[in-house]
Design a protein around this nucleic acid. Structure first.
Lengths: 252, 252
DNA sequence: CGCGACTATATGTCAGACATAATAACGTTC
DNA sequence: GAACGTTATTATGTCTGACATATAGTCGCG
């Protein structure tokens, strides 16, 4: 199992994690300099090699860049790779979450996923359809528990993206995954099993099965509508509650 | 000592560039090991430090991972961050381009951009509208040359994404930019100025200006339709011609 | 034939040195 | 005193050689 509270795990990755979260959290703002390599060596108890490798991890995501003599600075916000799963996770995790981001994600999903469902209805093969069906079956089985529901739910949505047979659409899976991770987080601290959403998922599956592109589009839209209402209802209460739990939400 | 055979520029970035292109180009396939650090030091005439930093750049994009003793290997294709601008560029650039990817990109644009135009029509502010107008004006001025047209064209589409006031939609800018880079490449080696597409862009702008969401959606759809037909017409000839120019396309 | 101990190997980390470029400080000239 | 060229400083960039660590592969034992 391994609990690894904070120690031991990867050198560069650990530092990048902390620094990335700090940047996304606003500790270091665009055009600010991050602490110098030597200073970070001291703080993290690591060698310059490792700190520099951490820098490269963040540089690859568009977060920082370095100039000789001047130091390493945070790049302009527009340069950040916002669709990168890690960047998204850092944004969503930081204590003072941004409710607007949650809505932005929902709106983006409302654009992408219905279209994806329609494309899947047209392009599905026996194999890709089977993957969707498997995910759906697992969802039905886990419908009583929000926690157990999460995994097949993500799998369901990703399976649809894969069934589009479009590499770019498939790539949105990472986005959906990050988004659903948060929504689940919201849902779990709210009463009520996810059972009601099962038939809505079922409708999407059914439309894809009979190659009904328009129907799949509509069904996915309806599903996301329900999710959006759920989220909207819970964002306020989540906001109230975050004050006392800072960011202690354990990743299950 | 170091003889620096090639052109001196960038250390880690240069190596990451080559390796990334090689992975996306299929030289190293998923689950394959890439050459060891020492071997790459030899090949690139660099120190292990630099090679390792290059590895981190690629690791951050999901392309590779390392295990002790076993070496550094290419991760499964599903793990690659396909929406990353560099990854996309590497895919598009490699000599044996994938025509399917070009179509996938077009289809994805057809999903995202009309929706973005509609959102922009609703959410635009004087400032964001002005940015779109400026880009359009520059397009009109450059309508006679495909090369000059490219920059304001990209700016136009990105300005619309920004005007949505949705961080996730805005992030698609990198995607559009990479896609347009290729389409321009195709267009330039084909006769005819981009002038005909100007009024189509103008219609989008006009709809956004009068806050007509549905109209903006339709206009953007029409614009992309034309682009799609253009691309479709030119992919075949591009394919034929790539044999003799391998990958000598100079970046303008 | 299965299993534990050992070894070789590639990555992971470290410390110290020098190279490089851009800024800041200085001093000279008009 | 202001403009300009020179030097010093500083943080990143690169190189080197060494040691740490985990594990795939090998060997030998039961």
């Amino acid at each position: 199992m391994m609990i690894r509270t904070s120690t031991a795990v990867g050198g560069a990755a650990r530092i990048a994690e902390k620094l990335g979260a700090a940047i996304l959290g606003g500790t270091y703002k665009p055009h600010d300099l991050v602490p110098g390599e030597i200073e970070l060596c001291r703080r993290f108890g690591a060698s310059r090699t490792v700190v520099r490798e951490a820098f490269k991890l963040l540089a690859a995501k568009g977060l920082i860049a370095s100039r000789k003599r001047a130091g390493t600075y945070v790049r302009a916000r527009e340069e950040w790779h916002m669709l990168d799963a890690d960047v998204l996770a850092w944004r969503l995790r930081d204590g003072e979450a941004e409710p607007k981001l949650v809505f932005d994600l929902m709106h983006a999903r409302a654009v992408i996923e219905p279209a994806a469902a329609a494309m899947a209805a047209r392009a599905r093969t026996p194999a890709t359809l089977a993957a969707i069906e498997r995910a759906f079956a697992d969802m039905e089985r886990a419908a009583h528990s929000a926690v157990l529901f999460a995994e097949p739910d993500v799998r369901f949505h990703k399976a649809i993206l894969t069934a589009t047979d479009n590499d770019v659409m498939t790539a949105f899976g990472a986005l959906i995954e990050a988004a659903l991770g948060i929504f689940v987080d919201v849902a779990t601290r709210h009463p009520g099993a996810p059972a009601p959403s099962v038939p809505l998922h079922g409708a999407v599956l059914e439309a894809i099965r009979r190659r009904d592109a328009e129907g799949a589009h509509r069904a996915m839209m309806a599903l996301l509508d329900r999710t959006a209402r759920n989220v909207e209802r819970n964002v306020a209460s989540g906001k109230r509650r975050k004050a006392r739990q800072t960011s202690a939400s354990a990743r299950v």
